Measured scan of single mutants.
Amino acid sequence: LELTLRVGDKTWHFKDVDEEFVRHLEELLKRGAHEREIEEIIREWLR
Rank of each mutant, 00 (worst) to 15 (best):
I38Y: 04
V22A: 04
H13G: 02
T11M: 09
E44W: 09
T4P: 02
W45L: 04
L3P: 02
E37T: 07
L3I: 15
R47C: 05
E20C: 04
L28E: 06
R23L: 09
K10T: 13
A33D: 05
H34G: 13
E19I: 15
E26C: 11
E19V: 15
I42A: 01
G8H: 02
I38H: 01
V7I: 13
E26I: 14
L46F: 13
G32W: 04
I42T: 01
L5Y: 02
F21A: 04
R6D: 06
R36I: 11
A33T: 12
E27M: 15
E35R: 06
E40T: 10
R47G: 08
E26W: 13
D18C: 03
D16P: 12
T11E: 08
G8L: 03
R43L: 13
L46Q: 10
L3F: 10
R23F: 09
E19C: 08
I38K: 01
K15E: 05
W12T: 00
T11G: 01
D16Y: 15
R23E: 05
G8K: 02
R36A: 14
E2I: 10
H24Y: 13
W12M: 02
W12R: 00
E20T: 13
F14R: 00
D18P: 13
L46A: 07
V17S: 14
D9Q: 07
I41Q: 08
L5P: 00
H34A: 13
H34I: 07
F21G: 02
K10A: 06
I38G: 01
T4V: 14
V7F: 05
D9R: 04
H24G: 11
E19W: 15
K15N: 07
I42Q: 01
K15C: 05
H24R: 11
R6V: 15
E35S: 09
D18Q: 06
L25V: 08
E2N: 15
E20M: 12
E20N: 14
R47L: 10
I42R: 00
K10R: 09
R47Q: 09
V7T: 02
E44S: 09
E2K: 07
E35Y: 12
L29N: 04
E37F: 08
R47I: 10
F14C: 02
E35W: 14
T4E: 11
R6N: 11
G32K: 04
L46S: 05
E39G: 05
D9W: 01
I38S: 01
I41Y: 15
V22T: 03
H13D: 01
R23S: 08
W45D: 01
L28S: 06
E39F: 07
D9Y: 02
K10L: 06
W45F: 12
A33L: 09
R36Q: 14
L5K: 00
T11Y: 07
K10G: 02
L1W: 15
T4D: 05
R47F: 12
R36H: 14
W45Q: 03
R31W: 10
E26S: 10
E37S: 05
E26H: 14
H34K: 14
R31M: 12
I42W: 10
R31T: 09
G32E: 05
D16A: 15
E37P: 02
G32P: 04
L5S: 00
D18L: 02
W12G: 00
K15R: 12
E2F: 09
I38V: 12
R36D: 14
F21C: 02
K15M: 07
R47S: 08
E2L: 06
W12K: 00
K30Y: 13
K15W: 06
G8E: 01
R31A: 12
R31I: 08
I38N: 01
G32N: 07
L28V: 08
W45I: 03
F21K: 04
D18I: 01
V7P: 00
K15Y: 09
K30A: 12
R36K: 13
D9N: 10
W45M: 05
W45R: 04
L3Y: 10
D9I: 03
R31V: 08
T11H: 15
K30G: 08
T11W: 07
R36M: 14
